Simulated assay, not measured.
Amino acid sequence: MVMIPVIDFHLFTSSDATDRQTVVQQIYQACHQIGFMYLKNTNISNDLIHQVLKQSKDFFDLPLTVKQQLAWTDEFSNQGYVGFERERLNPNNPGDLKEAFNIGKQKLTDIDVTDKLSSPAKNPHILNFYQACTELANNVLQAIALALKLPEDFFATNHNQQNHTLRLLHYPSLSQPPKLRQVRAGEHSDYGSITLLFQDEVGGLEVRTASGKWIAAAPTPDTIVVNTGDLMERWTNHVFCSTKHRVMIQNDDTLNQSRYSVAFFCHPNDDTEIVCLESCQRDKSPIYPPILAGEYLLSRLQATY
């Protein structure tokens, strides 16, 4: 049975070459076989994660009229509040049973948004968290580069404009039955290179294995979920996989509980050309034509809303 591996990331940031190489190999296997892993012993403290989850809850508890003042407007900025059922990650299903708030680096200093006291982008914990996630993402990207026999800074350099999106997510408790085929987050793959995901204790995340079986990516104490996205799959010619995942409505006590999570979506610089890496061609030709990272992200966002 395929399992999502737990990797001690502290061993990669240590000075021991053998430990580092062990982690590099573990990350290669995780990205190649299932596209998901749990990392423990990272630079992000549980205290900071709890603070961000609390700030997220405080924001989503605000009246809808207040949240709508910060509404998401278009795929070009991809910032702001996304209302309940507004998004359909699986276009064949009804709207997802969730609400979200997207924050990009530019919005952390954007006076139009941060002047509004209700905006999470104004909160210092959110700013600290964004910076900590950026640091962790760069370290993971360094490990991935080594796993693919590339210069260690290859991916980090192509992400140095920090075009990342921090997404606060709230899946409300359900007081009435959902519509047919309606779930908390429809089946989808992520659009960028890698994603860092922070979950509360309420489960529901599921990952589809290569054999087509859905397995739980259950909340695991003191770990962060990391998965590879579409652009990493394209870069690596499917050596690494962008795995479909979803958030389901569980038929237990969690039906009456809100679920909170925070996703940090890592995107390459908009002008980075995503072209098959030479080390990933092997015996097969490139599967995809080259595409600019910014163009790909825009096309996926336009299809989602």
Rank of each mutant, 00 (worst) to 15 (best):
M3S: 12
M3Y: 11
I4M: 05
V6W: 01
D8R: 00
S15L: 00
R20I: 08
T22E: 12
H32W: 08
F36G: 02
K40F: 07
I44T: 04
S45K: 01
D47H: 01
T65H: 02
V66G: 00
K67R: 12
Q68G: 07
D74E: 06
E75A: 15
N78M: 03
N78S: 11
N78F: 11
V82Y: 09
G83T: 11
G83Q: 15
F84A: 02
E85S: 05
N90Q: 06
G95C: 05
A100L: 14
L108E: 11
T109M: 06
D110A: 12
D110W: 09
I111V: 12
D112V: 13
D115T: 14
L117W: 11
S118W: 02
S119I: 04
S119D: 03
A121M: 06
K122D: 03
N123P: 00
L127A: 11
F129D: 04
F129S: 08
F129E: 00
Q131T: 09
A132E: 15
A132H: 10
T134N: 13
E135T: 13
L136C: 08
L136P: 07
N139M: 14
V140Y: 13
L141V: 02
Q142P: 01
A147H: 07
L148F: 06
K149T: 11
D153H: 10
F154Y: 15
F155T: 01
A156R: 14
T157I: 15
T157Q: 14
N163S: 13
Y171E: 11
P172H: 01
P177V: 03
R184V: 10
R184M: 05
L196D: 01
L197S: 01
F198L: 13
Q199S: 08
E201D: 15
W214D: 04
W214Y: 06
V225P: 04
N227C: 09
E233H: 10
R234G: 07
R234Q: 14
F240E: 00
C241W: 03
C241S: 11
S242T: 05
T243K: 10
R246Q: 15
V247Y: 04
M248R: 12
D252S: 02
D252R: 07
N256C: 07
Q257N: 13
Y260C: 12
V262A: 05
C266H: 12
V275C: 02
C276F: 07
C276G: 00
C280V: 05
Q281N: 05
P289Y: 05
Y296R: 08
L297G: 05
L298V: 10
A303G: 14
T304C: 09
Y305M: 08
